[in-house]
Design a protein around this nucleic acid. Structure first.
Lengths: 229, 229
DNA sequence: GGTCACACGTGAGTC
DNA sequence: TGACTCACGTGTGAC
């Protein structure tokens, strides 16, 4: 006597399959005969009623175990639904494929993060905790009061921080402005996120006094403060 | 009689745990008693030898089933190893956590890809596994055979990758060279590490044919290939 | 007929 | 205690 009808082996490799096994198990619960397999020699249970009467004995955790199996199968089905590459329609290969998929995704995330990540520029924030926080505090309101920040470092060196909305040709104009002011770029780091970009220049100007640098700063501001929205 | 000793419930939440359950099951196979459970009324099997004699009867797929269970548990253990967030040490929650983790990873990949696609450097490596490896292979030997890599992307767009040893004024010369060739920089990402720097330009040139770009490439090479060591 | 993958009911252990 | 998880051996359909 077949305990439970089985779904045919074949099937689409796609996930779908409408995971309602829990209710399916619940609905299939209404059959009279109780325990199937049992101990090999435990006839001392004594619950064996005469033939013709359905044996009402149920193990204490019969349906609980049924529910547990249903949940487990549910999860495997759901797992099969989220994993795109299913090699075989079996529990074992489903789990293997899920493991491979997780590893692949983790590698992908790591790779994408490393592509997206940018080193903050070694010269931008000098080492030490105090100056670190000092250089970050003005960064927060620079987004709202202006997009160009020029910090003199002494001996013709500056840090130039520019925040802008990305727009074609804008960066070239900035570079041209720097070239026209005889600015030497020692290091440049750019982070781009969504439609925005923030560039960190470490620049050096040999012969120009500070007044000229203010002029350059205003020029850069006029470049990046185009009416973008 | 306990069929099989069970490992204690507790344990480190970390994955590790040396998945050798397959061999463990195999090694635990050498106990004499055969079948445990059986049918409810199939006493016609008749294999019941008198007590004191180990029943040599084994179901046809007894050890096969053991192996299958071992593999399944192996996979669940391995799955638990790759999923960082394990809420409970149970099969069911392990699968649930794996599903959640896969969904989270997939969202993360999607988000990172959209962030990366937003920046014009999106085509550095084209999506897909095949072209991915193709774009990585030339990157590996560019460090040894040359420091300038120019990849046409079609419709006046190029990816320009420059690897150099950092030196004062060098970057300015590169920018000047780009300016002189009427190059528009769409995006620039630079990583600096120790004495080296690698810059990734996404550039666009409106009217120049490819021959001119080769010329620019050679110019850039002559700039960054200064005798630095 | 043999292999494989499953579902099944049950005993046992844990909390 | 009862609720829960797990391993076990077996029956059985599908290949």
């Amino acid at each position: 006597m077949p305990r439970r009808p089985r779904a045919p082996r074949g099937g689409g490799s796609g996930g779908g399959e409408e995971v309602k096994m829990e209710d399916f198990v619940e609905s299939m619960l209404n059959f009279g005969g109780g325990g199937g397999g049992g101990g090999e020699d435990e006839s001392e249970e004594g619950e064996q009623l005469p033939a013709g009467e359905e044996t009402k004995y149920k193990s204490k955790n019969l349906d609980a175990e049924r529910r547990r199996r249903g949940r487990l199968n549910n999860n495997i089905l759901a797992l099969r639904a989220v994993v795109p590459k299913i090699t075989k329609m079996s529990k074992e290969s489903t789990l293997s494929d899920a493991i491979d998929h997780i590893k692949k995704l983790q590698n992908e995330v790591l790779e994408l993060q490393s592509q997206l990540a940018d080193s903050p520029g070694e010269a931008w924030e000098k080492q030490g905790s105090a100056s670190c926080s000092e250089s970050f505090v003005p960064t927060d309101n620079i987004h709202y009061q202006g997009q160009v920040e020029l910090i003199p470092l002494g001996s013709f060196k500056y840090n130039l921080k520019i925040f802008w909305t990305k727009k074609a040709g804008l960066f070239t104009k900035v570079l041209e402005a720097l070239c026209s002011y005889n600015v030497q770029v020692l290091s440049l780091n750019t982070i781009t996120f969504y439609g925005y970009a923030e560039s960190f220049f470490s620049i050096e100007v040999k012969g120009e006094p500070d007044v000229v640098m203010v002029e350059l700063r205003n020029l850069l501001s006029s470049i990046v403060e185009v009416p973008s929205m």
